[in-house]
Design a protein around this nucleic acid. Sequence first.
DNA 1: CTCCGATGGTCAGCGTCCCTGACTGATATG
DNA 2: CATATCAGTCAGGGACGCTGACCATCGGAG
Lengths: 143, 143
Amino acid sequence: MREPHPALLMFIGARYVEQRVSGAVIAAGYGDLTPAMARVAARLSEDGIRVTDLAEQSRITKQSASVLVDQLERAAYVERVPDPTDARARLVVIAPRGREVQRVARREERAVEREWSRHLGAERLAALTDALRDLREITDPYR
Amino acid sequence: MREPHPALLMFIGARYVEQRVSGAVIAAGYGDLTPAMARVAARLSEDGIRVTDLAEQSRITKQSASVLVDQLERAAYVERVPDPTDARARLVVIAPRGREVQRVARREERAVEREWSRHLGAERLAALTDALRDLREITDPYR
DNA sequence: CTCCGATGGTCAGCGTCCCTGACTGATATG
DNA sequence: CATATCAGTCAGGGACGCTGACCATCGGAG
């Protein structure tokens, strides 16, 4: 095979972390979380967010986001509360069960980062992250 | 937001290249290629490959691979020929139209790589690629 | 204050992609 | 030649995201 393109190598790394985190979350007993639910759930905070904003940030339609929030709500990861400033809107806020999953996911991310640091050395990992961050300036169309 | 995880930065880079290549392919008149078709088509060569092997390498079931090969065949990107060494099997070989798309895709990949080299400098890009390749040793479960 | 266009959100229906399970036909091995 | 194995297809279903149509509320212009 030809020399793999850097983007393919990036894809492999990203996929690995996704699977590690997903595995940890399932092992911790949150098997009812699908990848799609997890993607929108990753954007939640205590403050609450509107479905429309959630959709925009997740780059999906508000209809799709609405369905995913339905599922997250049914599984007790989030709650919908009325927006006190706008009677049309409702805020999606993270629930206790949602906070638990976030903790599990972040712990696994940190674990992977430690493994990478052991494998490459702290310096090369830092350089790698720096270069990726610089590349983001020309590859990330959304900020 | 917290400091983004390196894996997120990798994902952004990989997604960018995927969209660039996909855009170039569509602009070149191959709009009937879906992402799923492209993913399996990327593993084709002159020698031919069995649907079962294609499925395994693409990490999808042979049923899914079979459907995608159907579509690729209908759109003239590949042909199915009998396997001379096994009467049960048929080989999926790339057709002229398939070779054309591969050329377009590779050209766009090289273009992106040049842009990245301009942005980071050849040395940092090489170091980035090296580090990613080393990381692959512990993140790529499939060789 | 009253319109009326813009905005937040849902409902209905559809297409793509990938899966599982069951099956057909050909091959290899005893 | 009986049987286990292998290549591949058929049938059906679930997850995910899209478009289009619609309703309620908001907020600025007249």
